[in-house]
Design a protein around this nucleic acid. Structure first.
Lengths: 284, 284
DNA sequence: TCATGCTGTTCAGTATTACCGAACAGCGAG
DNA sequence: CTCGCTGTTCGGTAATACTGAACAGCATGA
């Protein structure tokens, strides 16, 4: 009996996206279809893969194992397709890769450096995360690196989204007054992102879970300002690890929360684009 | 776009079995279904995977690449299923593995030695190839190692056949009069298998392709007798490489022909059997 | 050279499966 | 307690896999 890779993909996306409805939107299916497909997968594997947690579901440990193995298998299928496309069509021409600032030297450059196609040019373009999907849709770029926060659901039907990595969230404190955990920041001044933003909501929730209301003294959407603030001893903050540039002298403590970095391309892109996408999510 | 693993499996089986009709029988499908599925796979991948060779087809180089990558992916799917079954059911109890003599120390024992399940016993049973499928069907053994020569088509619907390896055919000559190629054996006495057997037909075809009719002086179905004959300088022969026991002092020259070694189990076997099957076709 | 039997393919039809929307059930937040 | 979120089930439709018949092409043997 062979497992159905579309169902495996749905399971993997459920791990990545968190809800059946989000998976449905990402996959351009209805929630009922996703629910039924996952039920069939459970019956085929004779394994409980999901369990109810309130009004949501989460993956059981078996479900997590399967989702992770599935990702590897699905990646190999993508690699095989890319290899076949490569046989037909030597990747060539220019591919424009857009990514948010902190992804460029951490994800894009290492990936591109490993490519070995004499006629392929990859142009790396910095794009703010909120601008990357419109740029992809308009054809201004061919591949984007973004986070699930900035991938609006439903995903447009001709866009493929691929998870790349998980980026931990870190607690930042000044070098002179390092803090090892959130609780130690109860009385500290806080630098936050703009109200309503994902990071602001996340930071609020994390502080409340640590048992206090954060004393917010500043709000920046430009993380460099946040980093400067912390380095100067003016605030503590939480930011994604990728956003923390080593040139700022701050103490970073990883929290048990991550955000998900994804890449996206237009569906059925030419071989050169597929190769770049594949290079991005192949571990270096 | 995700490749359809059932189609990949058909392509892989075409590589292993050689004809669309043989694949159809092995898969319990009609030849027209296999033909259409492979056509769809070609259109999905935008790659020619097959080409006509007279009244048969063969895989193109792209088809071979895909078939081989497919096998790896399909193996991983089997491994994931086995892992899930292992979560549900620690492999335990006795599994009886039947194999033809030359497969035991070359394939079965190395595979079993790598298993690591405290409650799993594997009993290895020698079975002549023609006896192994009936033994599997009757429940006398749980896994068999055989060759495609002894897997009658159509495969019974509840049997899964898995390719394991390719066993080259070798030209055997006495140590005192070693022969480097078939043509050099034009005037030699030949030991053959029984009339009508696969090996006899194959040997006949190989000799004729080398430009001569073999002078057959003996016919043995027991390959030990063949080996003894060659060692004693009484004949030359062709046999599968696995059948050549090193304790016989003969000169073996590999020919550009192979036979295919397969394993088979009853469908939907319990986890312990699946684990053994998986161990068999995981390279050591 | 022709007939036969093998191979694979195409076609039209049927069976099976994937998907949808509606309706429902359960849970958490206000 | 109400509302709005989540996921699930049901019945129906659309899409796909599969079949058998008919066909085409090739190799072999008489």
């Amino acid at each position: 009996m062979t497992l159905n890779p579309w169902r495996l993909k749905l399971l993997s996306q459920l791990d990545a996206l968190g809800t059946v409805r989000a998976v449905a939107q990402a996959a351009n299916l209805s929630a009922s279809s996703v629910s039924q497909q996952l039920a069939v997968l459970e019956s085929e594997t004779r394994t409980q893969l999901l369990e109810r947690t309130g009004r949501r579901v989460r993956l059981t440990s078996a479900g997590l194992i399967l989702a992770r193995r599935a990702r590897s298998i699905l990646d190999q299928m993508d690699a095989v397709e890319a290899e076949l496309r490569g046989l037909n069509e030597e990747p060539s021409g220019r591919v424009r890769l857009g990514g948010f600032q902190s992804s460029i030297h951490t994800l894009a450059v290492p990936a591109i450096q490993h490519l070995n196609h004499p006629h392929l040019d990859v142009e790396i373009v910095e794009l703010e995360p909120h601008a990357s999907m419109p740029a992809l849709l308009s054809g201004e770029v061919d591949v984007i690196i973004t986070t699930t926060d900035f991938v609006e659901l439903p995903v447009p039907p001709d866009i493929d989204v691929v998870p790349l990595a998980e980026d931990p969230i870190v607690l930042l404190s000044p070098p002179g007054q390092p803090k090892a955990e959130l609780k130690a920041c109860k009385d500290e001044p806080w630098a936050f992102d703009m109200p309503g933003s994902y990071m602001a909501k996340l930071a609020t929730r994390l502080c409340r879970e640590a048992g206090f209301e954060p004393r917010i003294v500043s709000r920046f959407s430009n993380y460099m300002l946040t980093l400067q603030h912390v380095e100067a001893g003016l605030a503590v903050a939480v930011l994604p690890a990728l956003a923390v540039d080593p040139r700022f002298d701050v103490v970073a403590k990883e929290l048990p929360v991550t955000r998900k970095i994804t890449a996206a391309v237009r569906r059925d892109s030419r071989a050169a684009i597929t190769v770049v996408l594949h290079a991005l999510h192949t571990p270096q």
